[in-house]
């Protein structure tokens, strides 16, 4: 029925318009954004955990590294990172693979402006199908997000580790636990309740940073909204229209408002759960109310 859209009445025109393969790409990209968030969040937490642990390490260089990572990444606008980090990461990986796979390659890697590694070191391989390239790009974006937001998470966890009452750790030591045991059995389980408000906020921030994904070469919802919304002349599409970016961006606005709202409600519930039975003001209040 959609073969000649110019003959359709308004409603079926809209129905056809909203189901073009290009629109399907937009709907699909919602999934991309959601799965990126789902993978980035634990990855950033992992980076954050690593950063926080090294920032309180007793080994001096490691401590400097941890503190430097937190301070530098937090001091720079995320957008500045996004604009060059993906290429840097990609070249870094290819450089390492080149050293491993082609140790006796005669040509230099940098030839003028070109960055050339041997064919076996390409990421992904030149022969790989397009979806492999896209997946690889997706994971580079995840990694970039994880590094940036890992620094924020590290800062939250660092604060949370220091908020665990010192008496708890002293008691553990008195029971004869090694520092390692104290860390894993006492400190880590108890720190989450202190970290959750900060981490919850970070999650909201992460959601709101996803409109910058298109900078990382991922075709996200903003990319498709801009692409679909721009004015189209009849020569290049069956569905010519004026500048409709307003409507597409309005859709994005609603999407983000709903998403952050739902997150807020879920995080509130989670906080109530976690406070339960904890030796904090909140936990005490819950006990009294019960």
């Amino acid at each position: 029925m959609c073969t000649d859209p110019s003959q359709l009445d308004q409603f079926s025109w809209l129905a056809c318009y909203l189901t073009t393969p290009k629109h399907m790409a937009l709907y699909w990209s919602v999934g991309t954004v959601l799965s990126l968030l789902a993978i980035t969040a634990p990855a950033a937490l992992l980076f954050g955990f690593g950063g926080a642990t090294s920032a309180r390490s007793r080994i001096t260089p490691l401590r400097w590294f941890g503190k430097g990572y937190i301070a530098i990444v937090r001091g720079v606008p995320d957008i500045a990172f996004f604009l060059f980090f993906v290429i840097a990461l990609d070249q870094g990986f290819e450089w390492i693979r080149h050293q491993v796979k082609c140790p006796d390659w005669p040509d230099p890697i940098r030839q003028g402006n070109d960055f050339i590694v041997c064919a076996a070191a390409k990421m992904p391989l030149g022969t790989a199908p397009q979806w492999v390239h896209e997946t690889y790009g997706f994971f580079l974006a995840v990694l970039t997000f994880a590094i940036v937001f890992g620094a924020f998470a590290a800062n939250v966890l660092y604060g949370a580790m220091r908020s665990v009452p010192h008496a708890q750790l002293e008691t553990a030591a008195a029971y004869g636990m090694t520092p390692r045991q104290t860390f894993w059995r006492i400190l880590v389980p108890q720190m989450w309740v202190y970290a959750l408000p900060g981490l919850g906020n970070l999650w909201m921030v992460l959601i709101k940073a996803t409109p910058l994904l298109f900078l990382l070469g991922v075709e996200d919802i903003v990319y498709w909204a801009r692409e679909l919304g721009g004015a189209k002349t009849a020569r290049f599409t069956d569905y010519p229209h004026a500048d409709w970016r307003m409507w597409y961006f309005f859709g994005l606005l609603v999407f983000y408002l709903l998403f952050t709202r739902v997150s807020e409600v879920v995080l509130d519930r989670l906080m109530k759960r976690l406070t339960h039975g904890q030796a904090t003001v909140g936990g005490e209040a819950q006990r009294k109310a019960a």
Binding site: M204, K208, F249, L253, L257, T260
Partner: peptide
């Protein structure tokens, strides 16, 4: 607070200009 904290600044700029 909900409107401005719940949406990305990127999109706020876009709408403001419009």
């Amino acid at each position: 607070i909900f409107l401005f904290r719940g949406s990305p600044l990127f999109i706020q700029f876009f709408f403001a200009y419009f």
